[in-house]
Simulated assay, not measured.
Amino acid sequence: MQISFLQILMLLGAFQGFIFSGFAFFSNKFKSRSNLFLGLLILTFSYNILQNFLIISGILNQFNYFETFHIPLSSVFLVLFYLYVLYFLHPNLKNRKSHFLLFVPFLIALLESILEKIGFATKLFDQRDIIYFNYFRIGFEIFNVIFSLILILASFRLIQNYERNRIVKSNKHPKMVVRWLKTISFILLVLCLYWPIPLYFEINHDLETSELYFYPLWLGLAVTIYTLGHIGLYQYGVVQEQKSIRNYSNNQTIAIHVEVENSKNENVEAFENYIKIEKNYQNPDLSLELVADELGINKSYLSRIINNEIGKSFTDYVNEMRVEEAKIYLANPDFKNYTLLAIGLEAGFNSKSVFNAAFKKFTGMTPSEYRNSIK
């Protein structure tokens, strides 16, 4: 038996996943429903990699593999991913019994696998009967491709609805950046569209070619899911920091001072009240068009009076206010270990890069330089 370099990578990836999933399960810092599903996703995927390693490396032949070790997990990966996305975006959502119906395909495949194992153990079946179980597995794999595509599209819909709804929601709650989650979903979609290629060769009993084409799928899934694990836990930590900062902001009267020219224009006063007093500058989706709609003012007219009466562009006025708020958070010793991303998001910026650029424009320093300067 000779183990290739790719097979060694599979084995190492499986053990890495077991360790990582244990961390997600048992760390109090990351205890949440979304991370529970994330940990289950990594655990089941890691076990599946180990299963594939055992049969590809020749440690188990196909008959012994399905007779003893095999657990049909391919139908559960995207279910766990969908539930992770759902509860990450909506942590206060109540559990729904309908969500557990998503596990029905997995339970059917598991029941078939158990019956198969019992049949071989009791000599009710022999190796000649394995062909019938192979037919079931191939049919089920075809179903899995379709089922997985539906779940990924449903995940995309959840993300898009969140992005659409967060624009109009109250500023009392943190607004998460979910571009990374959309990117992960897109990669999973591409991998699912690739899945039928190795499956085609498996159906035509060309196992050697099928195995060759399955390697990119396994490798792509491994990289994507483990990346999801690392980013997911990091983003969860950022969200918890955002909540802490937002609670502080909601319970404190933070004095934000931005120099403006004196104005008696009632529309300018309404604009300043909307941005400053109501703290709508904290909204990362804030735009001139949104403000104009909220105030019932023509967009072009609003832009003109902001420039003429306040003496700043809309973007500079809002970003300067965000920078002033970020400076308060950076100077607060309670937030000294918080990520710059969480502070920037809570000040109203939609990314760390935009936060850094705006902060340097108005202070001449990066946020990290400013934080170090006040220690």
Rank of each mutant, 00 (worst) to 15 (best):
P198F: 04
L199N: 04
F201W: 11
F201K: 03
N204S: 08
H205W: 10
H205D: 06
D206Y: 03
L207V: 15
E208R: 13
T209C: 07
S210F: 02
S210W: 01
L212E: 11
L212I: 15
Y213L: 07
Y213F: 14
F214K: 13
L217E: 06
L217F: 06
W218M: 14
W218F: 14
L219V: 05
L219R: 04
L219K: 01
L219M: 04
G220R: 11
G220D: 13
A222S: 11
V223W: 09
T224D: 05
I225M: 05
Y226F: 12
Y226V: 02
T227G: 11
T227R: 07
G229F: 10
H230T: 11
I231A: 02
I231C: 02
L233T: 14
L233M: 15
Q235G: 03
Y236V: 03
G237Q: 08
G237L: 09
V239T: 08
Q240C: 07
E241K: 02
K243V: 15
R246D: 08
S249R: 11
N250Y: 15
T253C: 03
T253D: 05
I254S: 06
I254K: 10
I254F: 12
A255N: 13
I256E: 07
I256L: 12
H257K: 09
V258S: 01
E259Q: 15
V260T: 12
E261K: 15
N262W: 09
N262Y: 13
N262L: 11
K264W: 12
N265Q: 05
E266I: 08
E266T: 13
N267V: 05
N267T: 10
N267Q: 09
V268P: 05
E269L: 12
A270H: 13
F271T: 10
E272T: 14
E272V: 14
N273M: 04
N273G: 10
Y274V: 04
Y274G: 01
K276V: 15
K279G: 07
Y281V: 03
Q282F: 06
Q282D: 03
Q282E: 05
N283K: 00
P284E: 01
S287E: 00
S287L: 00
L288Q: 02
E289I: 06
L290H: 00
V291P: 00
V291I: 14
D293Q: 10
D293A: 08
D293L: 06
L295P: 02
G296Q: 09
N298T: 09
N298A: 09
K299Q: 11
S300H: 15
S303M: 03
S303P: 00
S303T: 01
I305L: 12
I306N: 03
